[in-house]
């Protein structure tokens, strides 16, 4: 199986040592190979189209611009490709912007990178990592919409269950724990989170971003 399925990963990270650590961590996972490492937006875009990777790990603060540009190129790519933000703390508001641009989630680059391979694999399998702070942001978007924005419609429209799950995520609960609490499987929790991402993505038009920016969410 490891022989038949090997996913290529592109790393776009300007700090050399971190890039090396990421590469090493990724390559510990047999199903993943690192096809290239780029240290700026230009290089990242070139490598993206040259190698057509399955996964792109991208830092947001790059010397010649924002990793968001790379994420947009990934979304527009004509092959199956997904972008993950590599973040030091996983909490910055920029991550939300990256998610709106189409990133599937983020991976932490601080601390242990032991799990990074699994994180990448879970994204390939359709999962979406989410942090408490991102969940809080999403909830704020829902409530700020509902609290009578002049446009009337919430920025994103969540079901009761989705709101419940986001609330639990925002308090630091893990998927497994949420599943136990709500009496549903961990996979179902993951599906709900995927749906939330999808909604965020669907609504990720210029207008919504403009509104969110105006409201100080982004």
């Amino acid at each position: 199986m490891a022989e038949t399925v090997s996913h290529s990963v592109l790393i776009v990270e300007d700090r050399h040592e971190i890039a090396l650590r990421l590469k090493a961590a990724i390559e510990k996972t047999p199903e993943l190979t690192v096809c290239a490492v780029a240290d700026d937006v230009d290089g990242g875009l070139n490598q993206l189209f040259e190698h057509k990777p399955r996964i792109v790990l991208v830092d947001l603060g790059l010397p010649d611009g924002s990793g968001i540009e790379v994420i947009k190129a990934v979304v527009a790519a004509n092959w199956t490709c997904e972008a993950l933000v590599v973040s030091i703390f996983g909490d910055e508001a920029r991550v939300i912007e990256a998610l709106r641009a189409g990133a599937r989630g983020y991976v932490l680059k601080s601390g242990s990178l032991a799990n990074i391979g699994n994180d990448v694999l879970s994204v390939i399998e359709g999962g979406s990592p989410i942090s408490p702070q991102i969940a809080r942001h999403l909830l704020a978007m829902v409530s700020s919409g509902a609290a009578g924005s002049p446009e009337g419609s919430p920025l994103i429209d969540l079901t009761g269950r989705e709101t419940e799950i986001l609330n639990a995520v925002a308090k630091g609960y893990k998927r497994r724990e949420i599943g136990e609490k709500l009496g549903i499987s961990t996979g179902t929790v993951g599906n709900h989170i995927n749906n939330i991402y999808q909604k965020l993505n669907v609504n990720s038009n210029t207008e919504a971003i403009a509104r969110a920016t105006r409201m100080g969410l982004l």
Binding site: G90, S131, P132, A135, A170, K171, G172
Partner: peptide
């Protein structure tokens, strides 16, 4: 963080420490 909620910050703390705990 501007709209910090303590429960969310505790959650973030957990997320970062999880690997260390493991």
């Amino acid at each position: 963080e501007t709209d910090a909620s303590i429960s969310t910050l505790l959650g973030m703390l957990r997320t970062r420490l999880e690997a260390l705990l493991a």
